[in-house]
Simulated scan of single mutants.
Amino acid sequence: MPPDDKRTMGLRERKKAKTMAAVQMHALRLFRELGYNATTVEQIAEAAEISPSTFFRYFPTKEDVLLKDNYDPVLVDAFEAQPSDLNPLQAMRGAMVSAIANMSADELATMRERNQLIMTVPELRAAALNNLTQTMQLIAELAAKRTGREPDDAAVRTFAGAVIGVNISMRNIRMRTSLNCWTKR
């Protein structure tokens, strides 16, 4: 968690974020050791020292333990911080480069591992589609705000869909390769 976020978050929010991160860490470890399908919510909860009902307060489904993250606000902040003279594509590229550059090596490794699981486990891949649809809506709203158009404008939706398409195509490529792709001029 960035230092600025720690100052603005209250104790309760910090504790929730810490618990969520611990559950995700234990789940990822168990998925690695036992396999996704062989790992139960009860095993994840036990490893994270919480009850199964607490698990479900954080994650409505087992799939959500891998799909839920805190990257959307980071992307929004990075996009909005881009110079106003940039078009949406330039601003999105700058936001992605900035967001990735600010991630630690551990965060990048975890993201790679999560993406690998999502792409190789059919039920996770299916659940990820809903997540990508929500992200596409978020990108459409950001692009619309930047261009003075509506989020449902055809050009704005096409742009958001193209960004998601690139995201999907990059999921099987190592994060370092995708970073190099985004940072080449």
Score class of each variant (00 low, 15 high):
residue 53 S to I: 09
residue 37 N to H: 12
residue 45 A to F: 05
residue 62 K to S: 01
residue 154 A to L: 07
residue 115 N to M: 13
residue 58 Y to P: 00
residue 62 K to F: 00
residue 149 R to H: 10
residue 10 G to Q: 03
residue 121 V to K: 10
residue 95 A to T: 01
residue 110 T to Y: 05
residue 171 R to D: 07
residue 115 N to V: 01
residue 137 Q to P: 03
residue 21 A to H: 14
residue 90 Q to A: 15
residue 49 E to H: 13
residue 171 R to C: 09
residue 73 P to M: 02
residue 3 P to Y: 13
residue 147 T to P: 04
residue 184 K to F: 13
residue 168 I to G: 01
residue 6 K to G: 08
residue 72 D to T: 09
residue 94 G to F: 05
residue 98 S to N: 14
residue 16 K to E: 08
residue 19 T to F: 01
residue 21 A to F: 10
residue 7 R to H: 13
residue 134 Q to K: 14
residue 110 T to R: 10
residue 120 T to E: 15
residue 20 M to G: 11
residue 114 R to D: 08
residue 106 D to L: 05
residue 160 A to Y: 00
residue 136 M to S: 14
residue 127 A to P: 01
residue 55 F to A: 03
residue 151 P to Y: 03
residue 69 D to I: 01
residue 22 A to E: 13
residue 120 T to Y: 10
residue 144 A to L: 03
residue 157 R to H: 02
residue 141 E to D: 12
residue 139 I to A: 04
residue 185 R to L: 14
residue 172 N to Q: 15
residue 95 A to N: 04
residue 14 R to I: 03
residue 51 S to R: 13
residue 128 A to Y: 11
residue 26 H to P: 02
residue 113 E to Y: 02
residue 45 A to T: 05
residue 121 V to N: 08
residue 160 A to R: 00
residue 43 Q to W: 09
residue 65 V to C: 01
residue 107 E to D: 10
residue 163 V to I: 04
residue 146 R to S: 07
residue 179 L to P: 02
residue 86 L to W: 14
residue 137 Q to W: 11
residue 166 V to I: 11
residue 182 W to A: 14
residue 77 D to R: 04
residue 157 R to M: 06
residue 133 T to I: 11
residue 164 I to D: 00
residue 66 L to T: 08
residue 72 D to H: 08
residue 4 D to H: 15
residue 51 S to A: 14
residue 43 Q to Y: 09
residue 33 E to C: 07
residue 71 Y to S: 12
